[in-house]
């Protein structure tokens, strides 16, 4: 879970290049924000992922400056992604695709994928 981030300069993809008044802490947080966004975008691009979900109580989320990114929560221990899936193919395959799509961002951290809901045609 990422702590609420105070307003900081627009994050850039490379955390090291983000030199701003917020200092080292701000740099780190804006890096985390960028990371969460990247993870969300990559997860959404996977086949079988309809959208991201907040988990059962809306707890899977990252707080970014001025907004809330639902469905991704990454800290130094692990990465958590909650998705709403389609039934095009088995859910473990979708989860594994999400996992490999974000593997390089996650590094050593385990990536927990939670299939929070599915979309069934005709309902």
């Amino acid at each position: 879970m990422t702590a609420p981030t105070p307003p900081s300069p627009a994050p850039s993809p490379a955390p090291s290049s983000a030199a701003g008044p917020a200092g080292p802490g701000g740099e780190e947080r804006s890096g985390a924000a960028t990371e969460a966004r990247l993870i969300a975008d990559r997860a959404l691009a996977c086949r079988g992922v309809a959208r991201l979900s907040g988990g059962p109580f809306g707890t899977v989320a990252t707080y970014l400056p001025g907004q809330r990114l639902t469905g991704v929560s990454a800290d130094e221990r692990d990465v958590e992604i909650a998705i709403v899936a389609t039934l095009d193919r088995p859910l473990p395959q979708t989860a594994d695709e999400v996992r490999s799509a974000v593997a390089d961002l996650a590094g050593d951290r385990p990536v927990h994928v939670r299939v929070d809901d599915i979309i069934v045609e005709g309902t």
Binding site: D78, V115, I118
Partner: peptide, 10 residues
């Protein structure tokens, strides 16, 4: 690798 969880309602 991390867990894959499937929700009850799924």
């Amino acid at each position: 690798r991390g867990r894959t969880e499937v929700a009850d309602r799924v």
